[in-house]
Write a protein that binds this DNA or RNA. Structure first.
Length: 390
DNA sequence: AAGCTCACCAACCGCCAGATA
DNA sequence: TTATCTGGCGGTTGGTGAGCT
């Protein structure tokens, strides 16, 4: 059985989008929602295939997209999620709500992959390239645990996707009153893999949105098509429940309204990670703290209470390994052997250089260090037999 | 100033899975 | 049950601009 092309390619325009085309697409979606992408171009008066329109919308025109430089927090999230999920960009993108999978993919390929490569870490496996340098403990153990985590994560994602589908069916009566809003939710939470917040989007998508005060129209400017501020459809004030990130893109506190709505949707703090997610926000943690909270919960559940002093020392060592992994200015030398002065040396150097260079970012650095140490702790102490999944 | 190389990223392509007739 | 449609995903390409010689 052959597969027909998504649209009749003859006479359709390809290549960079013009401002006029963007205007048409935006205006149409703002008024009608995207509906069927296949039928959209004709209705919107565009000489494009539906697929091209969908990509233009999801990767650029969507109003809830943050553009520009990736923050350190975002980089950390990408690296850590890539270690767990591999090239599942859409899944990774669900944890960076304002970034598109395409943007994350590009950033990985052009920046992060090279950086890891320079540091002697295989960007595919996230293992040090030269295993001979490593002892049987430490980083190789981390790699093994990352591999296990990836398997576990895959199983979890599949289960989540299944649950999401079922929940979606059950909650179909909550369907959207706004076609544009429906569109936004659909594109924002389209992936089958997500944390609990994404579940909430899926299940109560018609009443929940996220607005970001820091979003600037100028961030939406395209190298090929520049839009005026008036062209950007408003996304605020559409919904009855709003989780609003207030502040800069680097650090956000959350102003949460409508707890009852969350509860109505069946998301209770005791049964999901939503509570932890919110807690993280209310404590002014970086956005990626949601993942942090999740992993800490898992650590609490999985981790046995048998930690010895030796194990604690081991954790410190591996936390430093992670710091090294994330140090963008380290010069790219991965040193793990005792001959190089041991882990304490490069830990101190790493922390010292970071502190020296960061100034007021010292707290942030410490926060980041703790964040990664905690994740490494989880990976270390979570054996398959400890997992509630098995 | 011209030519070359490299990095970046928007956009395209092909494949896949789920939905639907 | 099968064929087809549709949306989504990940890999890849090609245009553009910056930097270097």
């Amino acid at each position: 059985m052959g597969r027909s092309p998504c649209c009749d390619k003859v006479g359709l325009k390809k290549g960079p989008w013009t401002p006029e085309e963007d205007q048409k697409l935006l205006a149409y979606i703002e008024e009608h929602g995207h509906g069927s992408w296949r039928a959209l171009p004709a209705k919107a008066g565009l000489q494009r295939c539906g697929k091209s329109c969908r990509l233009r919308w999801t990767n650029y025109l969507r109003p809830d997209i943050k553009r520009g430089k990736f923050s350190m927090q975002e980089e950390q999230t990408i690296i850590q999620l890539h270690a767990l999920l591999g090239n599942r960009w859409s899944s990774i993108a669900t944890h960076l709500p304002k970034r598109t999978d395409n943007e994350i993919k590009n950033y990985w390929n052009t920046h992060l992959k090279k950086r890891l490569d320079k540091m002697g870490i295989d960007p595919v496996t996230h293992k040090p390239k030269n295993d001979a340098l490593l002892s049987t403990e430490g980083p190789s153990k981390i790699a093994a645990n990352i591999s296990h985590m990836a398997q576990w994560e895959s199983a979890r994602l599949e289960a989540e996707a299944r649950l999401a589908r079922e929940s979606k069916l059950r909650s179909s009566s909550h369907s959207s009153s706004s076609s544009l809003h429906h569109t936004l939710i659909g594109t924002s939470a389209s992936s089958s893999s997500s944390l609990s917040l994404d579940h909430a989007w899926k299940n109560g998508g018609s009443t929940i949105t996220i607005t970001v005060n820091a979003t600037r129209v100028s961030d939406l400017e395209s190298p090929t098509s520049t839009l005026s501020e008036n062209n950007v459809p408003p996304i605020n004030n559409i919904t009855s429940t709003v989780i609003e990130f207030v502040g800069s893109s680097e650090r956000r506190t959350v102003k949460e309204e409508g707890d009852q709505e969350w509860n109505k949707l069946g998301y209770h703090e005791s049964s999901t990670h939503l509570g932890e997610y919110k807690d993280g926000m209310e404590n002014s943690m970086p956005f990626t703290s949601s993942l942090h909270e999740l992993t800490m919960t898992m650590a609490t559940t999985w981790g046995s209470s048998t930690s010895s002093a030796h194990e604690h020392a081991h954790v410190a060592e591996e936390g430093c390994f992670t710091n090294l992994l994330l140090n963008t200015n380290s010069g790219g030398h991965l040193s793990l052997s005792p001959e190089d002065g041991g882990e304490s040396n490069y830990c101190h150097n790493n922390a010292g250089s970071s502190d020296a260079g960061s100034g007021n970012n010292g707290d942030l650095y410490q926060e980041n260090k703790n964040y990664w140490n905690n994740i490494l702790n989880l990976m270390n102490y979570s054996s398959p037999s400890d997992s509630p999944m098995f």
